[in-house]
Design a protein around this nucleic acid. Structure first.
Lengths: 340, 340
DNA sequence: CTGTTAGCGCCTTCAT
DNA sequence: ATGAAGGCGCTAACAG
């Protein structure tokens, strides 16, 4: 490995001078600058990142932990994160939390140990308490995404899950549906709870009785969406619309519906959540909720960088979802024409 | 930041001893071990990863660069990569190449500068020559995935793209299709070329004339699959089957087919590539090619680690795809019953 | 078993 | 404008 010493020797200067031209710090005569540069060139010198970070006490990188790498959602997120980080001239280091709270915590620790300037945590599993503990214990600024930690709200970039679900179900109701089934994402997660709550709230607001037999607890997978929808179909509880708490499960459910000889949307209307890339191309196109994950991750990164440079964080409004209406929902049995 | 010095002071020993208990190297009396441990505990000491790596001359991490984070495919890959790396007790650092050759190169450089013990490169865009240059210039072992670099074959983990495409198209032919359209993935990539070549080879083998008007160059996106299929449908060149060179485009194409009032598979049979998670749940289920990306990345990581520890690399056979037959293909106009 | 002494490769005063 | 020296936090002989 060719080090700064080699370069300094070759250029006939001291290591300090090489360091200066490398970092553009201090004054250095143009002619010696050139000498140093050509020496670096000739030797194929590459600064040692670790050594530099150690001395600098900053690795010029920001860490990102996602709960899992799987799914279109995180691909979308990572892509954007990577670009935004680079636009700040920093390096992004990503790790996954293997979809368990313990691993999520470890991942953050590991990034902190690597001296990241700031860390962004997208957690699905850690408790609010565990998150606070982390914020207090690691000496690296932490930004939390997809979670509203009340004691540290300015570090949180999150999304109005409940309200978005509420809107979706209310839309279904406005279309004349009253018998609306629901397949949830894991209720152990705040996201799962919030989406289900949105469903309940909408029913309640419109005076529709809650019927336990119409809601099934899913696990976010297509397979489970399929199975649970089959169960729903097999039960004697009828429904004219199904609210699947994510698009993957909606897709699985659609298969079950077709196989049962029913049609979408004529027999059963279907609403998803997340706006998966495929949603638009399914037949019929899947109505769903768009989550501004791109904007959110950009915001999170910007804030992480502000924290890293000790800038104050301006307050931030929660993000909201947008209903994306396509063809998978049609008028239900109770539909009344607006003019009526 | 609490350092080893603090711990050593607190425990009343030297830094060296602390280092010993930390790394389990050398002999340390049990009693002092305990002292050191409790000192670390009380102070909340965390070793500085950078400093340790600098001294060790190994960061105990392996780097992975993917051409992009987008798509289900890389999610699947990253997930597996992360697990496999950890099972070796190393840390995985991933970066994306923004889907351009220069960025892919830069990403590798950056990982090398960070002193990764080994690097795995999944490139879609770099030339074979550029890859070789990289192998020669960085002083970190490199494993290449999804590419067959002849001068360094033992470092390559790749997949028989051409043959898999060949099999898919031959299957279509066996089902009685002779007018088979094709939508490619970018022909600027080796993958794109290989899959198209497989299509050509199959036609040729079965004496079917190549018809330029039946093949369209796609870009891998659902949108483009939709558009190109529309174009195909609008042209006067008929086709009874469509070979889409990835599942995303197949999905887009399916929408175009439905919108044109045609049915799958009764009017047009459809074959994809990649076995996207959704393929199985579409209606009808999409026949496609499964690519053993999980196994491939595991192999790549194992080999990267072998390289990092100077073990010799055993030769490796190219991976092969598997046809996943579902319902999107049916007998074509030229189908002859096997018994006939 | 443990402490002392040199580094790892780079940065940063402080002189000159 | 440049060099010498010490330090970032940790590891690795070498003594004892």
């Amino acid at each position: 490995m060719v080090t700064m010493r080699d370069v300094s020797a070759r250029a006939g200067v001291s290591k300090a001078t090489v360091s200066r031209v490398l970092n553009g710090t201090g004054q250095v005569k143009e002619s010696t600058r050139q000498q140093v540069f050509s020496a670096m060139e000739e030797l194929g010198y590459r600064p040692n990142f670790l050594a530099r970070s150690l001395a600098h006490r900053t690795s010029n990188s920001i860490g990102l932990v996602v709960s899992t790498f799987d799914g279109f959602y995180f691909g979308r997120l990572l892509q954007q994160a990577s670009r935004q980080t680079e636009s700040h001239g920093k390096q992004l280091i990503v790790t996954d939390g293997h979809d368990t709270p313990e691993r999520e915590r470890e991942a953050v620790q590991m990034l902190a140990d690597r001296q990241c300037d700031a860390i962004i945590l997208y957690t699905r599993h850690m408790s609010e308490q565990a998150i606070m503990a982390l914020i207090d214990n690691i000496n690296v600024p932490l930004v939390v995404i997809n979670r509203d930690v009340k004691e540290a709200r300015e570090r949180c970039v999150f999304f109005e899950q409940r309200n978005a679900a509420f809107q979706a179900v209310e839309y279904l109701i406005a279309q004349g549906h009253r018998e609306i089934a629901c397949i949830t994402v894991p209720l152990a997660t705040p996201t799962g709870k919030a989406r289900l709550q949105g469903y309940r709230d909408a029913l309640e607001k419109h005076g529709i009785a809650w019927d336990e037999s119409r809601v099934k607890n899913g696990d976010s997978t297509m397979t489970r969406g399929y199975e649970l929808c089959q169960a729903l179909l097999a039960s004697r509880t009828p429904f004219s619309a199904l609210f699947a708490c994510n698009d993957d499960m909606a897709l699985g459910a659609s298969k079950a519906i077709y196989q049962a000889g029913r049609r979408i949307p004529q027999d059963i209307s279907l609403f998803g959540f997340d706006d998966a890339p495929s949603a638009r191309w399914l037949e019929p196109g899947l109505s769903t909720v768009y989550l501004p994950i791109d904007t959110m991750i950009v915001t999170a990164i910007d804030r992480a960088i502000m924290l890293a440079s000790d800038q104050p964080l301006p307050p931030i409004a929660p993000f909201t979802g947008t209903l994306v209406l396509r063809e998978s929902v049609t008028a239900g049995p109770h539909y009344r024409h607006p003019a009526a």
